[in-house]
């Protein structure tokens, strides 16, 4: 029982961690506080649904097709909608406020389109819904697959960002954009790419989520909020912190839902959020503010 709940909580946590990684890229590097972030996750879930039920293409193929599309879409959104804000913003703080307003509007646009197409009904599809036995515990194969893929994507991204020069350059923009310019990094382009990469990540999470969760057109906000909670809990801009906080949140939510009361899930989320903020205001792995 405990193992089952832990595995299923880890799957959820893996999704949170991936989603938070993407938001870390968008917020930490591109300095865009993207309130429409979760909408892309839902859109990707619908895309995977359509691929599977509409044209009988496996979500695993969707996982290869959808993120690049989300990358391109996010890149376009950044260039068309957000770059003008970047250009006119005098400070990064001003950009943050402007981006919140702009993406708040974008949230309703994307959500509206999805509501118009799919309505408010809940959707799910049955993919690999077979029980697997692991050390006496029963786990749905689709959940386990989603967890494994989330780990692969998360670890791959983490290594890419920490072990390669281009990844280090992306982190450098988050640390200090002026210093980044001084080592010949084109900060504008790097920001656009980081924003697009964040979009690709949240879309990948959307495909994975659709494999085992029931979703509807209104679910985006939930994931945006969870991503924010995880990012702040992990320490803003800290990749490893986001991974740990995401996993932690998923596990706690699932334990509370199963062992205490499903109605207290959200309360548990914000309880550990508050506890972390009280004990370590800078986040689990964040450093004290300058």
């Amino acid at each position: 029982m405990l193992l089952e709940v832990t595995l299923s909580g880890a799957t959820l946590g893996g999704m949170y961690a991936l989603v938070a990684l993407g938001l870390t890229l968008q917020y930490g590097v591109a300095r865009i506080m993207n309130l429409s972030y979760g909408e892309l996750l839902v859109a990707a879930a619908f895309a995977a649904l359509w691929f599977y039920t509409g044209v009988a293409v496996s979500p695993l193929v969707g996982l290869i097709v959808v993120p690049p599309l989300a990358f391109a879409l996010s890149f376009g959104i950044y260039r068309v909608l957000l770059q003008p804000l970047v250009r006119r913003a005098k400070t990064r703080d001003a950009l943050e406020v402007d981006s919140i307003l702009a993406t708040f509007g974008l949230l309703f646009v994307i959500q509206g389109v999805m509501l118009a197409i799919f309505g408010g009904a809940y959707f799910s599809y049955s993919f690999l819904a077979v029980p697997l036995q692991i050390a006496g515990a029963t786990v749905a194969a689709n959940r386990l697959l989603a967890l494994v893929l989330a780990v692969v994507i998360g670890v791959g991204l983490y290594l890419g960002l920490t072990r390669t020069r281009i990844g280090t350059a992306v982190r450098a923009v988050a640390v200090d954009p002026v210093a980044a310019e001084l080592v010949a990094i084109d900060v504008r382009t790097a920001s656009a790419l980081a924003f697009a990469l964040g979009g690709a990540l949240v879309a990948a999470s959307g495909v994975l989520v659709s494999m085992f969760l029931t979703f509807n057109a209104n679910l985006g906000v939930v994931f945006t909020l969870k991503a924010l909670v995880v990012v702040i809990m992990g320490g803003v801009g800290n990749l490893l912190g986001a991974l740990i906080a995401g996993l932690l949140l998923g596990l706690v939510e699932n334990y509370v839902a199963v062992f205490v009361d499903p109605g207290l899930t959200l309360a548990a989320t914000y309880a550990i959020f508050l506890i972390v903020l009280l004990v370590r205001p800078q986040g689990i792995l964040g450093r004290a503010s300058r």
């Binding site: 020069r165 002026v178 210093a179 980044a180 001084l182 010949a184």
Partner: peptide, 26 residues
């Protein structure tokens, strides 16, 4: 190359990473 006032090194990154980024220019 400019070494600005206040140095503007990447404080959160290691010395190795700072030097690696120094050679980011083509």
């Amino acid at each position: 190359a400019l070494v600005p006032e206040g140095r503007a090194i990447f404080g959160d990154l290691t010395v190795r990473e700072n030097l690696l980024l120094g050679a980011f220019a083509r």
